[in-house]
Write a protein that binds this DNA or RNA. Structure first.
Length: 579
DNA sequence: GCCGTTTTCGGCCCGACTGTTTTCAGTCG
């Protein structure tokens, strides 16, 4: 594991340990914040081992944390971390993963019933041994038992490729009831994260109680976790929690903003509101009159509430699209971001010649139907045997067929390409003479994806520097939730890509999303060119574009640096420049 | 523990819901 990943775990654990020990909540948060800042970093930490001042430049890392990070980089451990964990039984931290159990309750269980782990807790429940624990009644105990059962069968976070279609079906279900106005999904799904932990829905309705009732009539409801006047949480059988909030129409924007988060972005906005003498909550942005009772309960008219745009404007902050609400940047400027409508070319797609499901002709028809001015046909190369990769002769005949269909088709340029394997040593799967016959080359790693970082870096650098290569396809080879993929030195790749005018791909397949958001961000900041490709193997795969675009936007990518957005002439000239 | 365009000390976001309680603590998002 890389140092950065270990540090994320250590700071998270320090926060958790402090919480269980009853430390100051702000101190707890400060440690968690350091973990979050580390999550968003792509820099190599090794050179900073004796430079705490450089670490303190990152917002949220103060002197104390910087010294701890340096201690870890030098010695491989943090003494304070070890000292904290020694004060707690080994199993206590895992109890925080039980939904409904917070630090106070866990401390309570530990002190009054000797519970030190999930196993202890299960045993104590079975033995009916929790009677003496204060503020712990029968209902709470039953809920805890249920949560533990649920944890055992619940899966990981759900990939966005499953969560987004599910959310759209849930919204359809809500619209089936009469009197429903707006319905939107919020949360990390709306922010476009590559995986989501739950689904948040927001609705307006002239009969909130009726809608809450109707919501519970969904198929596949495993448990109703809570159901109030305006709020309802369900657990679906497939292990996903879904929350619905019914809100007033006039406050829909405030609620949407609030439930879209991120939590950190919301906190930053509220702090900004306070500095401007205002108060922000899910009902709107109100003048702050210093009273404790919430302004919406006193009939105060908000300065803004109906739309998100109104609220950002009233705060004098540029509108932030959901993808940029991760609190990674200052609030003062928002760059132009790529949109689905900007994408005019698909530069990575497969046909029945290798492992695709569309014939060459069907693929071209589909790309044209989608309004693209350019399509690159990039079937697999010979080493991808499992994908029916093309040997030299088959590739030459395929190139001929592509040239013919290009000449015969009006309204779209069809490029003869290949998705060429990058071997473990960095060499490519066809010789240079054959590569030169192709219009466009996407070079991708497919095998040897457990290489150590140094080898992976050298491998990818060789492909980036190859004069006949245009694009590096799914550079790390990760499969979300299944395979970590390569961990190359990203900044070295970015530097080389700039030098050799090579493009890095954002593979839009929701199982991949590779490069991922923070990688895109680093590449965008450096001035790199990127491509958003669907890697289509059938017609519906073109719909993956939205996932790639969300990832790109999270990385602050604009249309200027995304070659799929370029006009045909400019794109074709760039493609030709590598020949 | 972190931070500062009034601050190097004294703040640090806000509300819904539940369960265990007679007025509120804890959890969650």
């Amino acid at each position: 594991m890389a140092a950065r990943e270990e540090l994320i775990i250590l700071f998270d654990e320090m926060g958790t340990a402090l919480e269980l020990l009853g430390a100051n909540a702000f101190k707890v948060n400060a440690n968690r914040k350091v973990a979050r800042v580390l999550e968003d970093m792509t820099e190599d930490l090794t050179p900073l081992a004796d430079d705490p001042a450089a670490l303190q430049k990152f917002d949220g890392i103060g002197k104390s944390s910087a010294v701890k990070i340096c201690e870890f980089l030098t010695t491989g451990r943090i003494q304070d971390h070890q000292a904290l964990l020694e004060q707690l039984p080994d199993g206590l931290l895992e109890l925080l993963n039980v939904p409904g159990l917070g630090p106070k309750t866990i401390r309570n269980l530990w002190e009054h019933a000797g519970v030190e782990s999930i196993a202890d807790l299960e045993q104590a429940i079975a033995d009916d041994a929790l009677g003496d624990v204060p503020r712990l009644g029968k209902k709470t105990i039953a809920n805890i038992a249920d949560s533990i059962e649920f944890m055992k069968k619940a899966g990981e976070r759900m990939p966005i490729g499953r969560a987004l279609p599910l959310a759209e079906r849930l919204i359809e279900h809500l619209h089936a009831k009469g009197g429903v106005g707006q319905v939107e999904y919020a949360g990390s799904l709306r922010r476009g994260r590559d995986t989501v932990g739950d689904i948040n829905l927001l609705a307006t309705c002239d009969d909130p109680a009726g809608l809450i009732e109707h919501f519970q009539s969904l198929d596949d409801v495993d448990k109703v976790l809570l159901a109030g006047d305006t709020k309802c949480s369900l657990r679906l059988g497939l292990g996903m929690q879904v929350d619905l909030r019914v809100v007033p129409t006039e406050a829909f924007g405030a609620a949407l903003m609030y439930f879209t988060g991120s939590k950190e972005h919301n906190v930053t906005l509220r702090e900004r509101a306070i500095k401007s003498g205002m108060r922000l909550n899910e009902y709107g942005l109100f003048p702050d009159d210093g009273q404790d009772t919430p302004p919406q309960d006193r009939g105060i008219t908000p300065a803004a509430a109906a739309t998100e745009h109104d609220i950002y404007a009233a705060l004098d902050i540029p509108f932030h699209p959901p993808e940029l609400r991760e609190d990674r940047d200052e609030l003062d400027s928002v760059p132009p971001l790529v949109t689905i409508e900007d994408i005019k070319a698909e530069l990575h797609a497969h046909t029945t010649a290798s492992d695709g499901h569309l014939t060459l002709k069907e693929l071209v028809v589909e790309a044209k139907r989608r309004g693209f001015h350019t399509l690159a046909v990039t079937d697999h190369s010979r080493s991808s045997v499992q994908a029916n990769g093309l040997d030299d002769d088959r590739l030459r005949r395929h190139i001929e067929a592509i040239r013919e269909i290009d000449a015969a088709t009006k309204g779209i340029r069809v490029l003869a390409g290949s998705e060429v394997d990058i071997h473990a040593d960095g060499s490519l799967d066809y010789d240079d003479q054959l590569l030169a016959e192709l219009d466009i080359v996407v070079a991708s790693p497919h095998a040897s994806l457990k290489q150590d970082p140094a080898k992976a870096t050298a491998r990818l650098l060789a492909a980036i520097a190859h004069p006949l290569v245009h694009i590096i396809g799914h550079p790390t080879g990760r499969i979300i939730g299944r395979r970590a993929g390569l961990s190359p030195d990203l900044h070295a790749l970015i530097e080389a890509a700039l030098e050799h005018d090579t493009v890095l791909e954002i593979n839009a397949n929701p199982q991949r999303l590779d490069l991922r958001d923070i990688h895109v961000r680093a590449a965008t900041d450096a001035g790199c060119l990127l491509a958003i490709n669907t890697d289509a193997h059938t017609d519906t795969h073109f719909d993956f574009l939205r996932y790639g675009v969300l990832t790109a936007r999270r990385g602050r990518l604009g249309p200027e640096q995304c070659i799929n957005c370029w006009p045909a002439k400019r794109l074709h000239a760039w493609v030709a420049s590598k020949r």
